[in-house]
Design a protein around this nucleic acid. Structure first.
Lengths: 195, 195
DNA sequence: CTCCTTTCTTAACCTAGGTGAATGTCCGGG
DNA sequence: CCCGGACATTCACCTAGGTTAAGAAAGGAG
């Protein structure tokens, strides 16, 4: 149950047995059914989550329409950073696209960890840095590439997404309508034929 | 010279005199003329900068065209995070829009600070967290608002920008062409008249 | 297997914002 | 004070992607 998270953590900070045990004792586990909602808008996201198994969608609503900001898979970490860091109400939803198993680390426990094992400041820092690098990359894509380029790019960078996630969610992640994604796919397959 | 940075730092971490002095000794200062380039694409951004005075533009090139990612003013911190954190070559430019005075903290010195004064891990973490929150906000704007809404929004949130920064840079920050910003401004002023 | 829901595709039409080119304005340097 | 270059505006035209509506395919519950 803790093998994956231990491996993931080891990539950020060196912990001895005792330190990892302190960490481990702060964790709780949670199981989500497919489509189950983990976080609703207006809630306080008090946890950082590690995904042992499954797939998570992070999204928000704009005039009733769901906009997907990110997908997370096994061995990934996620949280609603705005809410987690500032204690403010989340402006986002999180749900499970598959049956999913999570490990949860509460904000207060992380704060305690910072005190008990100062090395965890580094963990917190690296989490934030990675979150930053990820969204920076995404934003650059969104502002500089056409929809078609974003689609091709995503296929190259994260082909796994196309094996597990329904197309209309992918469209939403690409910030286009499902119809537009269909159109792009057709155009690409036609221009491929004519070669 | 160090009064501003001390005040800014105090909002993140509590330091005693000695600790601040250690920090201060790691700083160097730098003066930029208007339009002077601080960081070029392909360079390694080895510093975090604090702005004592002036105004900085952070941008990148897409097919020869400058895309403004952010503006920074007095009492703000900035760096090219991708490059600073990973040591990779910067994909961005930084230049001064006005005569600007900076304080510079080198990557290696920050790493030393982490060792000498572990509290600075918290500083590093909060820097990264703030960078994350900032870009997240911007990305949400870019993906959910029309150009006109982004313009109105920016006027409300950061009116200072309009007093100091030429309009074509603002257009670039809004991710539209200068012509489009002109059109939007005209439309707004006309619809204002008809009320 | 059947029915119902969800997902995907196609097509006709629309619109926000890009493009290119011309004109006007302003500002700093000689 | 004047000239050249940078900046802003306007207009005519274009196009990527949105919208609406319909039907086809796929998949889960009973």
């Amino acid at each position: 149950m803790y093998a994956q998270i231990q491996r993931s953590l080891a990539r950020f900070i060196d912990l001895n047995e005792d330190e990892f045990e302190i960490f481990q004792n702060f964790l709780t586990s949670k199981h989500l059914a497919k489509k189950e909602i983990l976080l609703r808008i207006g809630q306080d996201c008090r946890n950082i989550y590690f995904i042992n198994k499954g797939c998570i969608r992070y999204y928000y609503l704009v005039e009733g329409e769901e906009k997907t900001a990110q997908f997370f898979f096994e061995n990934g970490w996620f949280t609603d950073y705005e809410s987690f860091l500032t204690g403010s109400f989340a402006e986002n939803f999180v749900d499970a696209l598959e049956a999913t198993e999570l490990l949860c680390l509460e904000r207060d426990n992380l704060a305690q960890l910072y005190r008990l094992v100062p090395k965890f400041e580094k963990f917190g820092r690296i989490m934030a840095e990675n979150a930053y690098l990820g969204i920076r990359h995404r934003t650059k894509n969104l502002t500089t590439l056409s929809a078609e380029q974003r689609y091709l790019n995503l296929m190259k960078e994260r082909p796994k997404i196309f094996e597990r996630i329904p197309q209309h969610y992918i469209a939403s992640y690409l910030n286009i309508r499902p119809q537009s994604l269909s159109r792009i796919r057709r155009q690409l397959s036609q221009s491929a034929k004519h070669e």
